[in-house]
Simulated scan of single mutants.
Amino acid sequence: MTIDCLNEDSRWDAINLESLALAASNATLAELGHDPQAWDISLMGCDDDRIAALNADFRGKPAPTNVLSWPSDERGADLAGEMPAAPDPADPELGDIAIAYQTCEAEAQAAGKPMADHVTHLIVHATLHLLGFDHEDDADATLMEGLETQILGKMGLDDPYRA
Rank of each mutant, 00 (worst) to 15 (best):
Q37M: 12
H129M: 12
M144E: 12
S72W: 03
D134Q: 05
E136L: 13
A116H: 08
W39P: 08
A23L: 12
S72K: 01
I15E: 00
G81I: 04
D158E: 14
Q150D: 06
V119Q: 07
A110H: 10
G146T: 08
A52T: 07
E105S: 14
L122N: 12
R162F: 09
D88Q: 07
I97E: 02
E31C: 14
A63C: 09
A126M: 04
A110D: 15
T127H: 00
G33C: 06
A24I: 03
D159H: 03
A23H: 12
A116D: 13
E107R: 12
R75D: 04
I151N: 02
L68I: 10
P71N: 05
L143D: 04
D134W: 06
M155T: 07
S69L: 04
D35R: 09
G132A: 13
E93S: 08
H34M: 12
R59N: 15
T120I: 05
W12P: 01
L94E: 01
L54M: 13
Y101E: 01
P62M: 06
E145V: 04
D96V: 04
L131H: 00
D35Y: 08
P92L: 03
K154W: 00
D47I: 01
D134Y: 03
D9M: 05
V119T: 10
D140S: 13
L131K: 00
K61R: 14
D9P: 03
A56E: 14
R50H: 14
H118G: 08
Q109D: 15
L6T: 15
